[in-house]
């Protein structure tokens, strides 16, 4: 092997690594920048709803559950905007599509992890406040009412996976439009939405949970895990779709 080939190989490995890291870092930066506005507003909204309900004596269980539902759409819109804006600069800066894909998945992971943690923390905090006020905490949406460590884990992982899926979905939708134009793009997007809807149903309506409970006769945390498993599959499907869409995406001289 010549030294030139060795140099190329070393540079390829290093360039790939740093490109993936840079994409993820960039998405992380956007998440921090935009999240600094978004999450305080969410907390404020939950507090205002609670105060209003309290005022009319209608406070009944969690109010956080009403506001955190928007988080996935927030993740979705970030997924639409951020990777799309990066395609051209990323390729021009010398990155590959593969590195962009990996970085976007990693960035979606960051979004999922941070969203999951923040939402789990919000629920935990809400439960604490409710306990202080001597109120009974429960929620009407979602498959699991566990509190404590189990509840925290289920919220963090479940909401995290949903945010992850929605972020990737957003990225896939914009890539679909870039590749296929508005009409075919719309069809692609609608079919792309299926895994996300599946993830949603699995987490909230809980058919997978019910199935696990009633047909398979599982109990304890296992039915909830079955629901999460479905979410994982949905996330993986979205990931694959994004990979296929980004794999050979051309760069057009257009201003977005």
């Amino acid at each position: 092997m010549s030294t030139l080939a060795q140099t190329l190989d070393a540079r390829r490995a290093a360039a790939d690594r740093s490109a993936v890291r840079t994409v993820a870092k960039h998405i992380g930066g956007v998440l921090v920048g935009v999240g600094a506005w978004y999450w305080p507003i969410i907390v404020l909204a939950a507090a205002i709803i609670a105060l209003i309900q309290q005022r009319f004596d209608a406070l009944d269980g969690s109010t956080v559950q009403y506001v955190v539902g928007s988080a996935r759409w927030f993740a979705f819109s970030l997924g639409v905007i951020v990777p799309l804006a990066m395609i051209r600069p990323h390729l021009a800066a010398g990155g590959t599509r593969r590195a962009l894909f990996r970085g976007v998945v990693r960035g979606a992971g960051l979004a999922g992890a941070s969203f999951g943690l923040v939402i789990a923390c919000l629920y935990a905090a809400e439960q604490g406040v409710w306990r202080l006020l001597d109120l009974d905490w429960h929620r009407s949406l979602g498959l699991d009412e566990s509190t404590g460590a189990v509840g925290f884990a289920v919220n963090a992982v479940g909401e995290g996976l949903v945010a992850f899926t929605y972020f990737l979905l957003g990225a896939a939708v914009s890539a679909g439009f870039v590749r296929f134009g508005p009409w075919l793009g719309l069809v692609v997007c609608l079919s792309l939405g299926i895994p996300a809807v599946v993830a949603d149903i699995a987490l909230y309506a809980g058919p997978a949970t019910a199935l696990a409970q009633q047909v398979l006769g599982l109990s304890g945390p296992l039915p909830a895990l079955a629901g999460l498993l479905v979410v994982v599959v949905a996330a993986a499907a979205t990931c694959l779709a994004l990979h296929l869409l980004l794999r050979s995406i051309p760069v057009k001289r257009t201003v977005f």
Binding site: R11, R12, A15, D16, A19, A92, G94, T96, R97
Partner: peptide, 10 residues
């Protein structure tokens, strides 16, 4: 899609 080259062509 070869990072060794794309990072060397601007």
């Amino acid at each position: 899609e070869d990072a060794a080259l794309t990072s060397a062509v601007l």
